[in-house]
Amino acid sequence: MRDFALSRPTTLAEAAAAFASGGEAAYLAGGHTLLPAMKSRLRMPDTLIDLSALPGITGVHHEADRLWIGALTTHAAVADDATVQSTIPGLARAALLIGDPMVRNRGTIGGVLANNDPAADYPAMAVAMDAVIETDRASHSADDYFQGMFATALEDGEIITRIGFRIPERAAYAKFRHPASRYAIVGVFVARFADGEVRVGIIGAGPGVFRWPQAEAALKNDFSPAAIKGLVLDSADLNTDIHAGPEYRAHLCGVMLANAVGEA
């Protein structure tokens, strides 16, 4: 790894100033995407800004109809948190499906959302639970935040501080994993809210997270696996690689959604 200057600011303003101070800068959260990328020299920042000392950037708070999770909260902390387990049990269970125990002890929700890997899991939860992504300078709704492969609404140097999920009545995640990498070939999160609205977030299948409006409408009438039987996702824009072609991915989306609805 090429050497860099490392700082550990204690306020958001200091962190943003360090980012703007010139050269190629990067924020460091759990490091489980950034450090592997730096080891292989895909990224060579000369300034690294460790966000872990920022006040109030970890932890879980329940406020009115939303569950707020600090950006630097690890996947293991989300899975183990009593408030997450009681308000959105499907989210706690989903966090346990990310990576492996070591990844879950370090990787953070903010890091996942900033990176927006097309196979990362949290974008499915963010979109399906109508999340608000709060930063040091703005508040983004999930529907506008994700902009395709590794692209988001974040400006250069913008820091995610917390994520607010609208609390559903019922919700669950189903993930079809690549057996070696543990990343999703397809992952589907479904959420049904008290007002009857149903939202479906799908990752792994396309170049970025997306919703499935036909399935949402069918599930709004009848929240059961039978309601989406026979419904097939259009495979035109889906990913293809050596693991799965677009038609197979479209098929998996239907199967995973039915599994998630059954579990919710």
Partner: peptide, 27 residues
């Protein structure tokens, strides 16, 4: 490995298992 995948480098950090190849000493 060079890709954070094998776990041969596991240590406990404040009691929790982590991959010491995917953590700066400074962290």
């Amino acid at each position: 490995c060079d890709t954070s995948q094998c776990g041969a480098c596991n240590v406990l950090l404040d009691g929790k298992v982590v991959k010491s190849c995917t953590l700066l000493a400074a962290q």
